[in-house]
Design a protein around this nucleic acid. Structure first.
Lengths: 291, 291
DNA sequence: TATTTATGATAAGAGATGATTATGAAACGG
DNA sequence: CCGTTTCATAATCATCTCTTATCATAAATA
């Protein structure tokens, strides 16, 4: 029995949470036979059955449920203690990070570098998508930690501000030389639920300029290219277009909006895993330079 | 880090308690290189040093001490939970049992059989010695659970009654036919600190008989042989000499003393190990037949 | 009902892990 | 200076654990 390790308990917990061996295998980045074997190991060590076949699924027996319930807090505490004393240098596992594209450009590289430096055993799986979809993935458990722009408020999500960026109105050189917003211009931004979209509408209203049309593209780099090639104007984080402005491909055509783009890190409000909680805590140290 | 198992924590704990890898190896019934390897495994998994060389010993680093202190209660709790849900069927390890010789004859076989039936993973190391020495071994940690005769009271020891046996005055057939205690007889018993010795003195006083001499032998079976061969009289548990009485080798030469021989199980008052505590709890069910 | 899909079990082979024995190096004690 | 104690290291072996591939069964679907 002494051979039961932390990963055995972790495995049982994820089977209980997800309902199938297969799902637990995917969550733990291993194979289904490995999960079966781990369960069998624990059952053999304890001499009792933890799961019972039911249809094509496995369900916890009464004792299995008892084991999960009584061990989970102890396991979590033990893992926490082990991680604490090693300053998380001993952390291992896969953390699934989600990010909006703008947040990715601003926050992700520094964060990933810090994790790789301080927690060599942790691997990361990064997925970029729109903020709205990111939150969905976070709530369903497909992501553990997401970075996103704009304020998010939900009772099921815990957020933390990690900095803000100045915005700038930019257009291609030709458009700028033609007078910029002297005449209504096509305006490009990310699709509607995006915070950049909201910032763009606010800026239009605040600065009293007219858009000839509102267009969207779900990829910021492509959006920059469209604007740089004369497609119109866009509101973008200044740091993301600083290079293009310096090189003259893009020109700032209006004063910078007062409103800044605020970034946040988010996790599930009910998150228990020490590693995720610690990484969330560490996002506070990112300190984005507003540009 | 997820590969850290219960036996890793157990190993660290015993090193901390005993001070050397070698001692921990002996306590855990393995070899010293195995202990070194376990320590190295934990250190590698956590990425920190737990021990520092000091002379020819290894001492805990600050973090090592922190780890032991913070993990030990969690580890104990986890082990307890795992054992509880399996009704201790998953228990494993070595339990060191001590016993006085009389207690061994009365209690040990049933107890050992019960442990082997209910906890197939547990192995036992039994040592017989005098009661006084047994208590010493218990307090120094050389034994985990001892069976002994006679009431024992010590703040450092926790005891539990497990039954009592009637005593009988016996002598060899020849001595009995010569009148028994009509004349003072040589009396044989265990050495002085033994409870049988006390019972013998009480019985002498209570029944108003005189001993020609008080002799002792530290081995009950030998003592029986001495008495059976005409060496004198002895006070012994009736069940231990029932066979000899039936066969006529020994004869009861006085009424049975009122005082019975009480047996107790004992563990250290500060005992923490779930397995030892459980075995101690189960000694209550031994129910010695008083004969 | 027949077919497809989902879920686990099982087997074989490779690699990692952990234990043992034997031996070496360093510190301590006389 | 020599013997003892303590831990490290190396070689070897057994066991454990993972992966891949395949099979069996149950549920869903056509």
């Amino acid at each position: 029995m002494k051979r039961i390790a932390l990963y055995h308990l972790e495995t049982l917990t994820w089977i209980a949470r997800l309902g199938t061996f297969q799902a637990a295998a995917e969550r733990l980045h291993t194979t289904q036979p490995a999960i079966s074997a781990r369960v069998r190991e624990v059952e053999d060590q304890l001499g009792i059955a933890l799961f019972r076949r039911e249809g094509r699924r496995m369900v916890l027996t009464a004792r299995g449920r008892l084991l999960i319930d009584s061990c989970e807090p102890l396991w979590t505490g033990l893992e926490q203690a082990l991680l604490d004393i090693s300053d998380f240098a001993g952390a291992s596992g896969m953390i699934r990070i989600g990010s909006g594209e703008i947040a990715a450009a601003s926050c992700l590289p520094a964060f990933i570098q810090a994790v790789e430096r301080d927690m060599p055993g942790v691997s990361m799986e990064v997925e970029l998508d729109l903020t709205a979809r990111m939150l969905q993935l976070l709530l369903t458990g497909a992501r553990d930690l997401v970075f996103l722009a704009g304020p998010v408020a939900s009772p099921n999500i815990r957020t933390q501000p990690i900095g803000a960026l100045h915005l700038a109105w930019v257009a291609g050189r030709a458009v700028a030389q033609a007078g910029g917003f002297a005449r209504p211009l096509p305006v490009w931004s990310l699709p509607d639920p995006s915070p950049i979209h909201g910032a763009m509408r606010d800026a239009l209203a605040q600065q009293g300029v007219a858009a000839r049309s509102i267009n969207s593209c779900n990829n910021v780099r492509t959006l920059v290219e469209i604007v740089a090639n004369g497609g119109g104007a866009a509101v973008l984080p200044e740091t993301m277009v600083r290079g293009e402005i310096a090189s003259g491909r893009l020109v700032e055509i209006l004063p910078r909006p007062d409103r800044m783009l605020h970034f946040e890190a988010a996790i599930r409000a009910r998150e228990q895993e020490p590693l995720v909680l610690e990484l969330f805590r560490r996002t506070a140290g990112l300190q984005i330079d507003p540009g």
